[in-house]
């Protein structure tokens, strides 16, 4: 069970969180033309990297904030967590 450092609440057990997928995916803007290909990519295509991955987690049993986690998909090591408006490089 992972130990996740919520940027709002601090260290909490994985039990309190829900996973939200790749955090680098950006939704195409509203009311703009989007090609089939771009939309398809947004809806269905995700990278599944071995190693570092920036992903979303939601503190559902806590502050209910979504935030970013940089995690190694092999070792589960968490390098960094950040609020949505903060950068993870």
């Amino acid at each position: 069970m992972l130990n996740i450092n919520c940027p709002y609440c601090g260290d909490r057990s994985q039990k309190e969180f829900a996973y939200g997928g790749d955090a680098t995916v950006k939704r195409p803007e509203l009311n703009k033309e989007v090609s089939d290909e771009k939309w398809n990519e947004f809806i269905y295509l995700r990278k599944s990297p071995r190693g570092k991955h920036i992903e979303l987690w939601h503190h559902i049993a806590g502050c209910r904030q979504w935030f970013k986690v940089q995690r190694d998909t092999v070792t589960h090591e968490i390098f960094k967590t950040a609020k949505m408006n903060e950068e993870i490089k």
């Binding site: 939601h58 559902i60 209910r64 979504w66």
Partner: peptide, 10 residues
């Protein structure tokens, strides 16, 4: 609720 929060926060 999670869906709404997702759109509002992200």
């Amino acid at each position: 609720l999670s869906h709404l929060e997702y759109y509002l926060q992200i």
